[in-house]
Design a protein around this nucleic acid. Structure first.
Lengths: 233, 233
DNA sequence: GAGTGGTCTAGACCACGGT
DNA sequence: CCGTGGTCTAGACCACTCC
């Protein structure tokens, strides 16, 4: 019990959050410096530093050298989503995962894709349509383009047994990615594959990945009606 | 230039990521312990620790005491979203933000809400419908319920000038929140407010927030057609 | 210029959890 | 048990940025 009062960086985070909530440090306040806090809390500055640094990463605080640390006016808390790796997502919900290749076409990159992915019309691309099922119920319709200049070995892969996403994460590393979430209406074709009605609202993810400035792949993922993505903060 | 070779924790992160990409440490590999790495990199263990800890947080590595650190099989990279605070979101895109209250009703909590938010039928709630505009174009339709037991002062607020979200973040702190993203079809009413067509696909966010186990508010936010949420990893 | 956070170090003790 | 990561310390130097 001797040093039961010693503060861990987690204790400090809790204390700081409490002080913000009970208006000891209202939004906009400049907090004491790290050395002062370390003394108040009776711990080393490094410990305070870690607590404050994490709170800043979580969007609660703003820190600037010389200016000091202040409580954010709008506590811009941020959500973290685990990017769904579809097989795992399905299996984690207790479903049996099944994958099917719908079509596979190699072609020169069409104009809109060149513009979007910074390709030239000479670049060859692979265009794939795939279906993902959970317990034989349609789960996701995938419309994917792979840049064969960035992933040449894709040309020799038939994608009949393995989904392009799974293949890509295993074979082609990436350095950057961009995700866009939106809602779109099911076209006739997509609706048929998803066993949905034409015009249904589909949760849609567009994903683009790069390997050092070079675009590797672009995909549109349409989920069956009712799909939702949840996160806690 | 003397110690230009000294490694920072960020350098170490880059080096580790490189070693993973060039298959020096393929997925599943158990990496050397922190002390070994510290020696290899010529720095203190704390420095290695921070690098590895952050890579674990980012979903690249799995760390377990005694078991050691290993490269994740499926690099579960995660996306971070800034939770849209609507006024800022609109103003950041250069639009002029306008808010309007559509309706405001105080009532006992209906059954479905009691179930969802763990309320009793005796609990009074405030039900609000609001519109948010960007340059007088409809941006978001908000359907919000506020638990008056958790936020009693909401009963004395008319919400004619300030949106409930903005009011809540300023007046009622929260400890936990849950967000759900989905796609839904516009009902006739919502479509009229959003100047959209009935049945249009709307990007929808449901948000619930708690203050220490007690539910504060639940909101359904329907965005105008075409809305999208983007993030980079 | 000076104050603040950012980072590094060398050493220490602790707690979890595989063997 | 005992090795590994998790955390803390006391002190130091650095880099940014406000004044």
């Amino acid at each position: 019990m001797s040093d039961a009062n010693r503060m861990s960086y987690q204790d400090i985070k809790v204390k700081v959050l409490q002080s913000i909530r009970d208006n000891t440090w209202p939004p906009g306040t400049i907090m004491p410096g790290e050395v002062d806090l370390a003394e108040q809390f009776g711990c080393a500055r490094a410990t305070v530093n870690r607590a404050m640094r994490e709170l800043a990463e979580e969007g609660i605080l703003d820190r600037k050298r010389k200016a000091g640390t202040r409580v954010k006016k709008s506590p811009t808390r941020q959500a973290k989503f685990v990017i769904p790796v579809i097989r795992e997502e399905v299996e984690n919900t207790g479903g049996a995962y099944r994958y099917a290749l719908v079509s596979r076409t190699q072609m020169p990159a069409p104009g809109w894709l060149c513009a979007k992915l910074q390709l030239t019309p000479e670049d060859q691309v692979l265009h794939l349509h795939c279906m993902h099922y959970s317990d034989s119920k349609p789960y996701q319709y995938e419309d994917r383009w792979i840049n064969l200049s960035a992933a040449p070995s894709a040309a020799d892969t038939d994608f009949k047994e393995i989904g392009p996403n799974e293949w890509l994460v295993r074979e082609i590393p990436f350095t950057d990615a961009e995700l866009t979430f939106s809602a779109s209406r099911a076209t006739r074709t997509v609706a048929e594959y998803l066993e949905a009605a034409e015009g249904d609202a589909l949760f849609t993810i567009e994903r683009t990945t790069w390997l050092n400035q070079q675009t590797v792949t672009f995909a549109r993922l349409h989920f069956s009606p009712g799909y939702q993505l949840t996160t806690k903060l």
